[in-house]
Design a protein around this nucleic acid. Structure first.
Lengths: 167, 167
DNA sequence: TTTGATGCAAAGACTTTGCATGCTT
DNA sequence: AAGCATGCAAAGTCTTTGCATCAAA
């Protein structure tokens, strides 16, 4: 989609020369355009590893040494708030949240070590992704709540070369 | 199952008179029997609200004023470790984990405010709970991991009297 | 008696917030 | 010029850990 490595080598202060597509995306979502936000967005979008706030921070810091971790958190909040990314809470206690610009419904696998993978779409298609409307209605009626979404979480551990669970 | 309110009124220091069933359960799971653990287990098992460590702490503190929050955490870890309960990580950032002695597979609804409900079994039965074996095999093969479990999480918000989403 | 559990306080991981300054609009 | 974003440090929430003491096996 937007690849951090595609940005111009004009690593300067002049924002106007930078990825107009991202800036348009920000405007469309009511976000101000700042250099920090662009870098953070590009880094997040370029990764398939569902990076943590700190991982993004470390990565962007190379190009933007003054960057603050608080800004990364604030920015990711803003993105999440306006639908530009999803926050994936950690399944571990005190584990860091992870972020994903792919806001389409998809299935995540959470590893015991905290990593998160996407299940490839062709595999996910083997599952029935739809909740029966009657189920949704009944749950809402009986629990007095309004369902807003759902997620299938697979749990897993990594494997060694022999295919046996590691760790 | 085990109801805290069913315990004998001998609220004394003599453990031998207390719920032998729970003590047997602990032994069967390789856990030492202590007054604190019994109280914590009974309180957790008596609740359907998926209480947090702190909620359990507050509740047990009435009968066991010396109880430490650290002990509650340590105990819940021990329970979780040996399969006596499940830990439900919070979907919120910095939100407290919740605990559940019902270790059967069941569907949870996570409210935006952090509460967790069980979906009644008769409703959950409307869903197909099984992952196709071919799906599991393919995921394991292509991602190089070993699937250990899965969970369907519904997201929801509470409703006001009119059935409209609240908050 | 040996080993593990408890209580306390301190530390730890992650995230948010207050406030002065600076950049966007 | 007005208002939101940034950076920094401090604070906040939840959880874990070190250590001396105590209870269970």
């Amino acid at each position: 989609m937007f690849d951090a490595s595609e940005r111009t080598p004009l690593n300067g202060r002049d924002c106007e020369c930078r990825s107009e597509a991202v800036r348009a995306l920000f405007r469309a979502h009511g976000l101000r355009c700042t250099r920090q936000r662009e870098l953070i967005y590009n880094t997040l979008a370029a990764s398939k590893a569902h990076p943590t706030a700190d991982e993004i921070f470390q990565s962007v810091r190379n190009e933007e040494p003054g960057l603050s971790l608080a800004t990364v958190y604030n920015t990711l909040d803003a993105f999440t708030e306006c639908g530009l990314c999803h926050r994936i809470p950690s399944p571990q206690t005190n584990g860091p949240s992870r972020y994903d610009t792919d806001t389409n419904q998809h299935v995540h696998v959470m590893l015991d070590d905290g990593r998160v993978f996407d299940v490839p779409d062709d595999l996910a298609a083997m599952l029935d992704h739809t909740l029966p409307p009657s189920f949704v209605e009944e749950v809402e009626r009986r629990l007095g709540i309004r369902l807003t979404g759902y997620q299938l979480h697979l749990s897993a551990c990594g494997c060694d070369k022999t295919g046996n669970p590691s760790k």
